[in-house]
Each structure stands twice: as C-alpha cells, then as structure tokens.
Design a protein around this nucleic acid. Structure first.
Lengths: 221, 221
DNA sequence: CAACGCTATATTGTGTGCAATGTGCGGCGG
DNA sequence: CCGCCGCACATTGCACACAATATAGCGTTG
C-alpha cells in the first residue's frame, strides 16, 4: 500500500477504491498532469495508485460515461481532447442549461441562499492568485452548484455531468483578467438572487457563461 | 454460454460483454421488465446473461454514471425511480436543451436533413399501434437525434446522456392520444427545418417537449 | 415483553490468473 | 530497396476466488 493513498483516504468516510481512483484521475486530468490525448494504461494506473486493475477498469468506465475520457475497445482509454469548436459548443450549451437551472434555483430558494453565495464569493475573491487555478475553480464550482441545488437535484446532477465532460476548463481560472471578470459577474448574479428575481438571475447566469466562453477564446485561444 | 446471447451478438461487430450487458439492461428497464426501485443483483444478472460478474459490475457503473440506476456502496444498485416533480423538471430541462440543440442543428444542416426527417416521420406514423411503444419510442429518438447530430456531436452526446436518465419515458408512446399529438408536433418542426428557420424550429422543439411533459401529466401521471 | 447484541447468510468489493486481441518489429519475397 | 507476412510482446477483457461489509433472524437480558 502506497502512503499517498492512505493520506488521501484518511479524511471522510472510507470510500471504495473505484471512487478513489475516479477522484484521483479527475484531479490529475484537471491539473494537467495527465495531458489530453495521453494514453491511460490500466496496469500502470493500478500500480501508481496502489490498487488492482479491477477498480481501475471500473473507474475508467465511469469517466468514459461522463465523457472525460474516450475509450477504444481493446485499445484502451485516452484523455479526451476537445477541438476549439466543440469547446465553444459546450460553453453555449452550458449557458442555456445553467441559465435554466439558475432560474429554477432562485424560484425555489429558501431565504439563506444569497447570504451563502456572498460568503463563497468573498472567499473566491480573497483567494491568493499564487495558489494556482484549482482552488478558485473549485470555489467557483461550489458557487454555481449552490444555486442549482436550491432548485432541483436531478437538474443539478445533469449540469454536473456536463461539467465532467469539461474538466480542462480549469485553466481559465489561471488568467487574472478572466477571473476578475467572472467574479464581477458572480456579484451581479447574487444581486438578482437577493432580489428574488429568477428571470434576471437566469439571464445573468446565461450571460456569465457566454462571457466565460468569449474570455477563454480571447486569452487562451 | 446461453443461446440468447449469441443470437443477440451475432449481428454487427463483436462487442464487449460489458457493452452487451449495458444494452440488455437498458432494454429490459425501458421495457419495464425490470421495474423502478427493483434491486439489481450482480450475480443474478451475470447468470441471466451468461457472463461473469465482472462485466456486469462495469455495466452497472456505466448505467450509474448515466443516471439510469442509482447505487449505494456495499448495498448494490436499484433502478432509479423518479418522483413526478423530478420527472417534470427533467422534461423542462430537456425542453431548454433540445430547443438549443435543434437550433444548432438547423443552422448547420446540409440540404438533406428535412427529407430524411420526413421519411422517419412517415415510418413513425405508420407504426402499428399494436407493436407496443418501444418501436415508436426508438423512431422518435432517431428523429430527434437526426436533428441534433446535424448540429454538434458533443451537444448531441450531452442530450443523449440526458435521455439515459429518463428511460422510463418510453411509456408515453403507449398512449394513442399522446402519440398523435407528438407526431403533429414533429411535422411542424420539420416544416421549420425545411424553411431553414433555426429560431422557429428551436422554439417548436422546445414547445414539443413541454407538450410531452403536459401530456404525460394528463394521461399518465 | 421489548430492546439490544450476536451470529449466519447474502451480496458486494478487490485481487489475481489466464485468454483474447491489437501492435510493432524482423525476416522473407518480390 | 520496398512491401508484406508472421511471430513475439504488450495490453485489454473476462472469469473466478476470496475478503469485506451489510442485513435479517434469533437468542438473551433487563
């Protein structure tokens, strides 16, 4: 047993090795340690994480179903690479879906939502830029799903599945100009949430995602 | 080896047993042979389909990621049951997504789309009601994805993943009044496709799905 | 009599071995 | 010298055996 694994699994309830491998692979893909197009050899991954190939295979199936990796029968898995057009399309789709999910969330919110969002936005803006994009990405994600979860679990899950197909998007939070703009968007959305104006919040969320699409094109290419 | 399996696998290129099990489970869930809430015992399924538990486990992971079944650690999988509110929410989400996907498809279509759609609509309306809803459901699905695939592969895949979470919806095609109305909707959408009016087609697709939601509530819910 | 704990059983979770499949290199023939 | 065939290796796919975990039923005890 490798130390790293026990470290990781110490916190929280004991999870299955399959779940553990899924998490680790997601992390490493998001962090760019495993590059798009790179082959994922199951025996190699198994040794790397100190587990047998069986849970690795299950993890790969899960990631494939989520769209994070692509799978060729008898030839193994590779990290999915996305051409720019597809990336734009996925952002457009996100804009539509998250606009809707946000509307639903604001319609059905209890009174505490806006306050909890502000707290998250504070922490997000306070993040030290030196810590890398991963932290900010995670906080951003939490912020979005705080709204969606207030609406409908099933809808929120579907949005989550869309984000899975999209892990490389972490990188946008590495560009200060982008982060600044997206944070400003968040504040506008939260204002609408506080007013309880679901239509407005939804529309702003939609614009927010379209902004992210535009900014990514502009600064990252 | 059970005959049934060889029968099934004879057509087309040899697929993995995991894929085979996924297909079979989907079928049986869609057909109502495996009822929502029903437990899915992996050893039982393995024997039933003449494979070992290993590919069954992988299939269950895939279906779980797709949202078709839900999974409790150490306690096994059950066919996901959807309460009416969640069903409505999912239809609403589908309306937004498919409206967008349809817009995209019509914008990017080549000249043959409308004709191919009409052909499918003809076959769908010609279906003998006695053959049960599964055939019509499948044709309906083909019709929808013919449009979506004309737009963006990645978007279409995301729509597909949403349909997966939704297999029990087959039943709507068992009610003649519903089928009739949905067929009429299709014709209206196809008219807009033929005109190349992406906005209109998208709006009609959106309405079409909202109609399905309403009809399901009225005749089934 | 009720509630608790324990044990027996069923089911899932993981590791390991081997078969099936695909890939790349080296030799053979043109 | 170039192309093709076939063999050896690497990798995936599947089956099976065993370990870990949850559940149900029974007996015991307050």
């Amino acid at each position: 047993m490798v130390d790293a694994r026990q470290q990781e699994m110490r916190s929280g309830p004991p999870q299955s090795k399959t779940a553990y491998v899924v998490d680790r692979l997601r992390e490493e893909i998001a962090a760019g340690i495993i590059v798009p197009g790179g082959a994922l050899r199951q025996t190699q991954i198994a040794m790397r994480y100190g587990v047998s190939p069986t849970p690795v295979r299950e993890a790969l199936r899960i990631l494939e179903a989520a769209g994070t990796i692509s799978y060729a029968p008898n030839r193994g898995a590779t990290v999915r690479e996305m051409d720019p057009v597809d990336g734009d399309d996925l952002y457009s789709l996100r804009a539509e879906i998250e606009g809707f999910a946000c509307r639903l969330g604001v319609e059905r919110q209890d009174g505490t939502l806006a306050t909890r969002l502000e707290e998250l936005a504070d922490r997000l803006e306070a993040e030290d830029p030196a810590t890398g994009p991963a932290q900010r990405y995670q906080l951003n994600r939490d912020l979005h799903f705080l709204i969606f979860d207030a609406g409908s679990q099933v809808v929120s899950q579907q949005v989550a599945s869309l984000w899975e197909a999209f892990t490389p998007a972490v990188t946008v939070w590495g560009v200060p100009q982008i982060a600044e703009r997206l944070n400003a968007d968040h504040r506008q959305i939260i204002k609408a949430v506080r007013k309880g104006d679901a239509e407005l919040a939804g529309a702003r969320m939609r614009e927010h995602v379209l902004n992210a699409r535009m900014l990514r094109r502009k600064y990252i290419g």
